[in-house]
Design a protein around this nucleic acid. Sequence first.
RNA 1: CGGGGUGUAGCGCAGUGGCUAGCGCGCCACGUUCGGGACGUGGAGGUCGGUGGUUCGAAUCCACUCACCCCGACCA
Length: 567
Amino acid sequence: MRISRLVTRTLRDDPPEAETASHRLMLRAGLIQQVAAGIYAYLPLAWRSLRKIEQIVREEMDAAGSQELRMPALQPMELWEQSGRAAAFGDNMFSLEDRRGRPLALAPTHEEVVTNIVKGNVQSYRDLPVILYQMQTKFRDEPRPRAGLVRVREFTMKDAYSFDAGDEGLDVSYQAMAQAYRNVFRRCSIPVVMAEADSGAIGGKDSHEFLLPTDTGEDTVITCPSCGYAANAEKAAGVYPDQPVPDPLPLEEVSTPGMKTIASLCEFLGVDEAQTLKAVFYSADGEVVFVTIRGDLEVNEVKLKNALHCNELRLAEDEEVAAAGIVAGSASAIGITKVRRIADSSISNGGNFVVGANKNDTHYRNANYPRDFDADLVTDIALTEPGHRCADCGADLEFTRGVEVGHIFKLGTFFSEALGAYYLDSDGGQQPITMGCYGIGVSRILAAAIEQNHDERGIVFPAPIAPYDVHLVALNMSDEAVAAAATDLYDRLWAAGIEVLFDDRADAAAGVKFNDADLIGLPVRLVVSPRNLRQSAVEVRGRTAEDADMVALDDVVSAVNGLIQPD
RNA sequence: CGGGGUGUAGCGCAGUGGCUAGCGCGCCACGUUCGGGACGUGGAGGUCGGUGGUUCGAAUCCACUCACCCCGACCA
């Protein structure tokens, strides 16, 4: 490709709206162009890179025994009602109607459709296992798109679905996919952490996220430096500091004028936050829920949502709290009976707690569970935070930010039962197919690869996903010898199977061309110039190399091959 | 959805009631240049996000509205 003809314009300065490196560099290098919030056009350079990423994913999925197919992005809403997920996705799903008023969805994912396909093609355990995958555009009406290609509303995903006879088969498929994912990320130069993750509203057993650790990531990964445990913040099972369990003292009312927060209350009474129980109020699918947790801990809303089996969970509004008869600021579960009460297991870690007295400016000392109050459910809903320890080995946990580039789930039989996908086992019994699903954000891989591989001058494309192998710079194209030599080299490289981006611009200064080459960040830069031609040579330089090599014109092809195929 | 911010030429920005709305980059023409973001001369390019209002007069003031960005909520 000749840059003089390339539909892409590099920017001299950083775009002010871009905060993260990948977003900034993709805009500056002319890889992407925004169309609306969270909706981007992939310009020619990005598209070449994305096609290479897709090809790597394909190779690894095929090697793992998976078959590619293509399902529609436009789907009848009926299918989503059938699985019950129309409500689970809610406003995140783009929905529309056809000319006859039939409800349709732009698919955010494809479990429903793929399950129906398999249902029609698998009858016996002899037909299993099956793993299907596709490259498809997904539509999710994210509440807040951000960071360029990191969180968008329309994106390319590779999604795969495994179908097995039973849990042992699923384990095999799951491991095969996990290994394929590791291979993909290694080939794209994205060092990932594989972390335990929450399996979401659908349930299922295991789930793992693949995350690129980076400060600009939007997820939190919790890792144990000692035993290698890794989990995301929603899933992580950390151990919070133990409190001594004292002998219970009698409940005692104290006046606490104006004390509405845990911090002010603790200061006023001279107690530690861990010696209090706090009350938090949520709205779970519209129902007010009373949550009790030790004062030094926070509620993990994902764990709470799972415990409640609800679709929508948010903090309750003040009016909702008041309408439920709760005295915000001085509330406790003591005497509360009209709303559902959930408590974290930490209510039994410690004792003689300070709690609200359910009337203004008043608290109790020495509250103990279950002597003084009851709960409908006591379970682990505490958020793991800095300072907590590894549940496996007791070491201090480490917290880092990360960008999620892949996510795998053991789904179990949720979809096969909802949509009627059964097989006959060897005894002639009908069984629901055991499923797994596996997603890679293809367009997010591009962002993550750039986030990981760049320097102050621009992108440092990993060779396997670079839009072109070589950036050929011709200095002074009006010099006929330069034009002739560069054009000849361009043709010879392509003939040798090397992909070349040729900066043939006649009007751009040398500095402009060099800066653009650094910005776009192809693995190898070649310079043809009057100066070099006097030695019948070309300058060859790797993107991150300190110095350039002078290589004879006739040897350039083999020199380039040596740089881009080091293995 | 809550909080904060921004919409003026392709891009980045200036312009707080007054004449024909400017600057830099980019773009077009010609010439000179040619190894790390060149120079000269001439030129093209604008519903000032939208609607309504106030005013002799609105990019500028008021109301409403739309879009986009950032933080949070949210996010299989």
